[in-house]
């Protein structure tokens, strides 16, 4: 197999993986702070992808510009979802939280099926088939843009959590819930903000992903599982770990498509997940609880 082909596939895997990573980052941030596993994460991702196809079809809006309205809408959606629906569940047992988010996932995925039908939808931007030449490497333009959007969003989020006052307050909530209450932080509001930010990541990732793949309703549950694999591998609650996990899964999927049967590619992911859970349950970059 020619080395250039492999290199191209690896680069494509890294770029797609960064978008996966941003999606998983949303899940990781929500779990890290609110301690709730968002089992509707992939379904929310497909909602964002459908939204981008609609904006493209109706307004000819480029998916990378659709990021702005989608991110704003998802932020509000996430905030309201946490404040109004998820919040009372924080103290309830895990299976109860699971059921709640599964119910939301069922509504989202079937709502999409109802509105858009089972057929695949996509967007056809003018630069769909363009590529950038870097030496011997050929990089798809849309893929490079998608990865760029993912990295920029992730960096903005890092900066927010590290430097802004609200970001620090959210980290304080995650570290010590009781302590945060004692010093007078509005934990409910901060939790809702976090869920909003996690949803915002999903919106950006969704708009970026829609230029790379076609979207169908069953993609939702698939992305949910994929996001779990990524955050567990990277470390639940670790932001850098989510991106690293995304890249790892992106590359392994791309290589699996090249070397073994494409349909077996996620077997590799789940095998990796099992190994990480057993031998390093805090994830590759996570801290031990």
């Amino acid at each position: 197999m020619p080395a250039e082909l492999v290199a191209n596939v690896v680069v494509a895997g890294v770029l797609t993986g960064l978008v996966y990573g941003l999606m998983a980052l949303g899940l990781s941030v929500i779990f890290g702070v609110v301690r709730v596993v968002n089992f509707a994460h992939g379904e929310m991702m497909t909602v964002a992808m459908y939204a981008a196809t609609v904006l493209f079809a109706a307004l000819k809006l480029d998916p990378f510009l659709a990021i702005l309205p989608a991110a704003a809408a998802f932020f509000v959606f996430g905030y309201v979802l946490q404040a109004a629906v998820v919040n009372p569940f924080i103290t309830r047992p895990e299976h109860s939280q699971f059921m709640l988010l599964v119910a939301i996932a069922i509504i989202l995925v079937n709502g999409l099926l109802m509105i858009f039908g089972p057929d695949a939808k996509n967007v056809q931007v003018d630069y769909q088939l363009d590529s950038i030449e870097i030496g011997k490497l050929l990089v798809d333009k849309p893929r490079a843009y998608a990865a760029g959007a993912a990295v920029l969003t992730a960096l903005a989020l890092f900066a927010f959590f590290r430097f802004s006052l609200i970001g620090k307050a959210i980290r304080a909530c995650a570290d010590n819930h009781l302590g945060a209450l004692v010093v007078g932080l509005n934990v409910k509001h901060l939790y809702a903000l976090t869920f909003g930010l996690g949803s915002l990541c999903v919106a950006v990732a969704g708009c970026a992903m829609v230029v790379l793949v076609d979207v169908t309703p069953p993609l939702g549950p698939y992305y949910t599982l994929l996001a779990f694999v990524i955050v567990i591998v990277g470390g639940l609650g670790s932001m850098a770990g989510a991106l690293l996990g995304g890249v790892l899964i992106g590359v392994s999927e791309a290589l699996a498509g090249l070397f073994i049967e494409p349909s077996a590619k996620s077997m590799f992911s789940f095998g990796l997940l099992i190994l990480v859970l057993l031998f390093r349950p805090q994830g590759l970059l996570g801290k031990r609880a």
Binding site: A103, I107, N110
Partner: peptide, 14 residues
């Protein structure tokens, strides 16, 4: 319409 049933189902579940 495909999906309508599951949406109702999900709402009741919720």
């Amino acid at each position: 319409i495909p999906g309508v049933k599951q949406v109702f189902y999900g709402l009741v579940l919720l």
